[in-house]
């Protein structure tokens, strides 16, 4: 990892323009809440949430081809932990507890399903959101006596924005290093042919388990940071299966297997769904489903895939 960092530093020294550009972008991003109204800020919060979740999804499912349908389970878990523990713990402690919980849940899911073929994992994650939701509801009814919780952490939209921005930046750094490291190579090898991967010396189970748990932490933290947007949450809000679906759409729309793919998918998708959900609220789910199927059938490589094919064709010498 140290050699990798050195290489990256070396590389960036050669590209001062890129470095300055990134710096300016970062400064603008940090200053953004001072210059926009709450509606715009809320849109950006939404966007950052989806960017983090879709990128986390891509880092594991996009590379290994183990399709997870459980994004909402981790998001909801994070939101509910904040609702339940928010009053008792200091914020930094809370964040650590939430992150660890996401990690542990992912470990349990991963240990029981990741050693098997991908379809078992998908089935398990398909039901996981419903499962966590049922357990939380049961706990609230039995132990607390009521479904739903008030969230006692006061956070302004700008607070949420900055926290999400930090999370997104951390995720991008982790993802960037991960994909360039030997782990990234292993993830892609597993996605291409798991048998070959293990006969080439890759600890397939370890890599899958570790990366699934790591990316699940980011999904859980997103739920925790976003929770104060609502003052009251109940299971249908926190464990919204549509959210898992939207994350999947965004990741596929952008292009799987590339770090920048999800962000390319999030922005257009969010704009379109904002439009559709206000214009056709009753048909929103249907339209979302149709849009998704169109992506699966017509642009399986996503927007970046289309662009890459186009460039390759243009650059390839014609016979």
């Amino acid at each position: 990892m140290r050699a990798e960092l050195a290489a990256i530093l070396e590389e960036s020294r050669k590209k001062p323009a890129l470095l300055i550009g990134l710096g300016v972008l970062l400064a603008l991003a940090i200053a953004m809440p001072f210059s926009v109204n709450n509606y715009v800020l809320s849109f950006f919060n939404n966007m950052l949430g989806f960017v983090v979740m879709a990128t986390s999804w891509m880092l594991f499912s996009g590379t290994t081809k183990y399709i997870s349908l459980a994004t909402a389970a981790f998001f909801g878990l994070g939101a509910y932990l904040v609702a339940g523990l928010g009053e008792f713990l200091l914020y930094p402690v809370l964040i650590v507890v939430v992150g660890l919980s996401g990690f542990l849940v992912a470990l349990v899911v991963g240990l029981s399903t990741l050693r098997l073929s991908g379809v078992y994992f998908t089935i398990f994650t398909f039901g996981l959101t419903e499962l966590v939701r049922q357990i939380v509801t049961w706990y609230q009814v039995k132990v607390l006596g009521s479904v739903g919780s008030y969230i006692f952490i006061e956070s302004t939209a700008a607070d949420i924005y900055w926290r999400m921005l930090i999370l997104a930046i951390v995720l991008y750094c982790v993802g960037f290093l991960l994909l360039r490291s030997r782990i990234g190579l292993a993830l892609n090898a597993i996605g291409a042919d798991e048998t070959v991967a293990k006969h080439s010396g890759i600890n397939v189970m370890g890599v899958k388990l570790g990366v699934f748990a790591l990316t699940s932490v980011f999904m859980t933290l997103t739920g925790a940071i976003m929770a104060p947007r609502w003052t009251y949450i109940d299971p249908p809000i926190a464990f919204n299966v549509i959210a898992s679906f939207e994350v999947l759409i965004m990741a596929l729309l952008g292009g799987v297997g590339r770090l920048w793919g999800p962000i390319v998918g999030v922005v257009p998708m969010l704009l379109v769904s904002e439009y559709l959900s206000t214009r056709f609220p009753n048909y929103f789910t249907i339209l979302l489903g149709l849009a998704f199927m169109a992506i699966v059938y017509h642009i399986p490589g996503g927007i970046l895939g289309v662009i890459e094919t186009y460039w390759r064709k243009r650059r390839a010498p014609r016979p």
Partner: peptide, 24 residues
């Protein structure tokens, strides 16, 4: 390993096999 470059195919063997060499 489809979808990967020729060099990356071989690189997988190099850094994960008995050689266990760093990437560079």
């Amino acid at each position: 390993l489809k979808g990967m470059s020729v060099a990356d195919n071989v690189l997988v063997g190099r850094i994960y096999g008995a050689a266990a060499e760093p990437i560079a």
